[in-house]
Design a protein around this nucleic acid. Sequence first.
RNA 1: GGGCGGUUAGCUCAGCGGUAGAGCAUCGGUCUUACAAACCGGGGGUCACUGGUUCGAUUCCAGUACCGCCCACCA
Length: 884
Amino acid sequence: MSDIPKTYAPHGAEAKWYSAWDSRGYFKPRGDGRPYVITIPPPNVTGSLHIGHALGYTIHDALIRWKRMQGYDTLCVPGTDHAGIATQNVVEKELRKEGLSRHDLGRERFIERVGTWVDEYGGMILRQLRRLGCSFDWSRTRFTMDDGYVKAVMECFVKWWEEGLIYRGKRVINWCPRCLTAISDIEVEHVDRVGKLYHLRYPFKDGSGLIVVATTRPESMLGDTAVAVNPQDERYTEHVGKIIILPLVGREIPLVADDYAKPEFGSGAVKVTPAHDANDFEIGLRHNLPQVIVIDERGTMNADAGAAYAGLDRFEARERVLADLQSRGLVERIEDYTVPTALCDRCKTVIEPLLSEQWFVRMKELAQPAIDVVKSDRVRFIPERYARIYYDWMENIRDWTISRQLWFGHRIPVWTTDDGEYIVARSEEEARAKAGDRPITQDEDVLDTWFSSAHWPQAVLGWPDRTADLDRYYPTSVLITAREILYLWVARMIMTGMHFMNEIPFSDVYIYPTVLNEEGKRMSKSLGTGLDPLDLIDHYGADALRFALLVRTAKGQDFRFASVTNGRQRQVEEARNFANKVWNASRFVLMNLGDNSAEHKPEWVESEALADRWILSRLNETIDEVNRAMDDYRMNDAAQTLYHFFWDDFCDWYIELSKSSVASREATEEVRAARNRIIYILETSLRLLHPLMPFLTEEIWQRLPHRGESIMLARYPEADLARVDNEAASQMQTVIALITRVRNIRSELNIPASSRLRLYAAPTDAAAERLVRQNESQIKRLARVEEIVIVGQLPTLDSAARGLVAGFEIAVPLEGLIDIAKEQERISKEITRRENEAKGLASRLDNHSFLERAPHDVVEQARDRHQELIAEMEKLTATLRSFS
RNA sequence: GGGCGGUUAGCUCAGCGGUAGAGCAUCGGUCUUACAAACCGGGGGUCACUGGUUCGAUUCCAGUACCGCCCACCA
């Protein structure tokens, strides 16, 4: 039977089974039974697999495989997101290598170029997911810009426009001077930077002195159109209404009273720049102030900034303005200050708040139904705490800037007629029809990427058409995602689902942990993870990577994942070792199938033998716990339960205990029954493990006799709790304790494994005696004992090691082998250990309050244990005395 | 500024009112014919700190420190 290699070789198995599964159509839904549906978070087309993806999609696959084996009609829809800004950036970078910019190509050719790039290099990540083993329905793969998807996006825009939820507005938005587009509030990253706070002097026109204002951005003063003070601020009451001459510019601006000004900050007076600050914009509206744009979309000062500054970069302008003010004595002081700074979360460029005309979505009324479904538990967050974070955002929701000044994306379906009317339509034809004879031009901008992904669950199933998929598979079962897109994506999907489907998009939202590096910081591509999932798969196999991740995926608790050092990643290595353990246990079973391996009689599983009753009991407890854990998204518990059952219970005890019969040369009925039992346990374990380790389990399963087409089509085990046998468990515990005690004596007294011992055992009752007699051969084998002598009382022996086990006193005669001093030391240690425990118990039992207030069973338990310890100590002390 | 998580053996993490667990690492011993990526045995923790509640706290409450994350229009 040497045709089975000693170690599991993942690569052959992975390639072979993945294509077999895929070509046989196993990843597609069956079409009958209860649906269980997941639409994956679509990764960016430009993306490649990083460790966070590997975790997220492994969870997807484990759950979908588990449900599929349980008989659900499972569907997991994959796809990619066009990721407007990110993708455009990548292609522009390509062009730059050729010395071109997108403007050299023009819009149309640039879009073509992006298309080519996406076809050629995009979606690589989906191919990488196959390496992980993901059983997604590739025939339903979607892209947020495929034809059907465009239809969904247009439908939404038109509907929202008709319902008055979309509007065009001029206001201060977040502008990225590098990406040259507006971005929404949640695409802005806030950081604190060391900087300065500048206190500037603004003179009153009437010569009655000056007023001091504080700012972190002196260059913006060129666009000031007022200074504001708090109406309650008595220091300024007499000055309100006065005219100020704006330094360097000479513009006359008023001193207005507005609540926004906080008297306790700086001088209490704040300069107002309505075109370059969202708050100032609001103040401007309240006081009817002019809006002067002085910084253009590239972050360069424009003509309105004045001839001295026009053309300067905003940061250069800052220095120049400052120098000019200083030379005029208009800088009161400069202090160190931590400046809250807004960055573009894509490119980390400092955001320029800019007055600009954009398209917005009114969010308040969309948010309400989406809040309600979470409040009423129709949508459940796992872990629950995210519901509160969701409410905080949803209840203070602000309008959504959806237009982007990019070329790649969904072009905004708004056309303007020559007389200035907006025509909103699903297509150009429709727009032309609506416009009649008037010439129309389409809006140049595209939609925020998240505007399209907001429809993902329904759109990938066919919406806005009423398709069979949509009927059958919507709403979906669970959304599994990373924490950072809770607002950006999850919240918006719930809103669109409620709005267009009048139904929740999914009932569970599982936010999985973030993978951290050794320092406890989140792994991100920009920081460099030092970890490539594909390298890990190449090195250790996909199952090992999957298991290594799942075994630490507690419900919502981030975990650290080491990087590769000296070519090794110890956590994945551990999991690989487990895979190898499964492989070798299976190898043992397969090597002992015997000639009649095809035979299988269900009654052979039944057995009176302790080990058999015990392993069946443990197996069913395991099945029960694994199913519960999976159902509760406790992937770590499922993985650990299986690890422990398989390695400790099955390999270390059951296989060892069954070896003599399973590996026997004579194929008696009894032996064949034993072989069938062990196959049964192994086969069930493989099915249990399959969602976590699909390739390994299939590779082994296929070698088992008569198992059918694929483990993927096998039924997931269901616990039979009638099989849980507490008596067998406690008896087995005693047998294990007895064997361990003997091994321990052997090890501590340095007795070679080769020397066969005689064991005297004095059971305390008839049950204990029966236990030893019935399991004698196995105890002898595992404890490496030649003979077990059962006695009523231990004989006096000249030199022997003694020990206590629940239900027994034992002695091992060791003529010539024993080191008396060592044995004394060993016994003393046993006594001390018990003394310490007894001391603690005694002090509690002496405490009146404890006796009065603690529950009776706790007191009783303490009393019993105390008695037991005292009895054991007496025996041990007697043993110790016998040496002298 | 507000909020949320974390702090348990050398490392990665469970546990969360009755006196601490796992895996790995470490130490000692094994080629015991499935597996040395293994087997057998051992050692190792004042459960971050300070108070409080309780007969009893790692576990509950309050506060402190440190680490991490999210949100925020104080110029």
